[in-house]
Design a protein around this nucleic acid. Sequence first.
DNA 1: ATCATTCGATACGGTCCGTCTCGTCCATGA
DNA 2: TCATGGACGAGACGGACCGTATCGAATGAT
Lengths: 214, 214
Amino acid sequence: MMDEARGGVNTDRLVCLKVVDVAGGAQRSEKARQAILAAALEITAELGYERASIEAFARRAGSSKQTIYRWWSSKAAVLQEALENEIRSSTGLRDTGDPVADVRAQMTGVIGFFTDPRLGAVFRGLLAAAQSDPDVAESALRSLFGPRRRAVLELLDRAAHAGRLSGTADRDLVVDLLYGPLYYRLLVTRDPLTAEYVDQVVDAVLGPLAVGQR
Amino acid sequence: MMDEARGGVNTDRLVCLKVVDVAGGAQRSEKARQAILAAALEITAELGYERASIEAFARRAGSSKQTIYRWWSSKAAVLQEALENEIRSSTGLRDTGDPVADVRAQMTGVIGFFTDPRLGAVFRGLLAAAQSDPDVAESALRSLFGPRRRAVLELLDRAAHAGRLSGTADRDLVVDLLYGPLYYRLLVTRDPLTAEYVDQVVDAVLGPLAVGQR
DNA sequence: ATCATTCGATACGGTCCGTCTCGTCCATGA
DNA sequence: TCATGGACGAGACGGACCGTATCGAATGAT
């Protein structure tokens, strides 16, 4: 019984839940997809997240509301995909052997993304929506935050093993100490996010942990 | 012509715009105010910030929608006032002469507020609304965050002058390093906010700055 | 050629918005 | 004592969006 439920695969039960590609049909329109994502970014940047509506996305994209609902579950899902398309350039994390400089560069890229006139407001709106919608929170955490946080953690791991960073510090805590203040300024105090501020944070957090660097 | 329109003051036009207290009238109903604030907190805790509506507040409070709009400008304004009534207990900041312990105690109170089943979701919703509405952001910053941040800054100042804390550190940065990770966990990663986590953050940030304490 | 699937367009009931207008109640000042 | 005027509960109003359903036309694999 337990075997059937958790372990062994009962092939009789493996019915095809979704009958896919039984016969041909029209393909998803890439043109409509791009138009919708672009319109969503434009409108949200213009009106702010709350006042932006799916109906407005459809109007500007020259598409139908139903086409949006067919492929995305919510306004947040549309904007998350739109952000993912645009975010890649800003979040590169290189490993040059100088972990402090690498992290500093990545954080500077992050605040560039935060303060981008088109993307910043969209990103803050998405984080705001995540406060009321657990699905949005889970999805954003998995697609947007998770991979980047893991990359930073791995960089800190490699630096510690290479002896360039103190190995005793809790690396999850270090990441919180580095990025927490950035989000705090973005979402709460709204003080300006500058490269100088990144320098201050990096120096205060990583300075005491650096090994073998002047 | 232009003078009359823009420059010179034509006293004949200076009519009293708002005739106040010319004669008596009914007073604002404290009972209605309390009922509305309580209903707003209840409903928002039940449904979440976005799904809570002013119409629902009025229904549960047994009041009229118009009564809400007469005294508050928005759902956010109602909830901010409701939060201010309830927040005072959690945010005490004492000055016992041990700044590290005082800050640690205050931060523990803050996460108690964050994780309160009734107030936490309301607070996160208010922060979310502030991302799309500059008025909400300004008001929350002035009434909720400003005074408490100033209190912590002054405590750090006194501690530095008393020689219990290093006087060289930028105290604004220290506050960001202390509270940023808390908001980061609350709003972004959603990892649990525990007293142990507060200890970790306080030790990492204030430990290197403490003077004359074991 | 058939047929499933997409597309744009549009209609639908529903919720909530923010404003407005009633009639009632009540504190004040004449 | 009594008229005045503001706050109150109730509810109507047009409007914006929501999320769903339905339509005919276009598309593409079988």
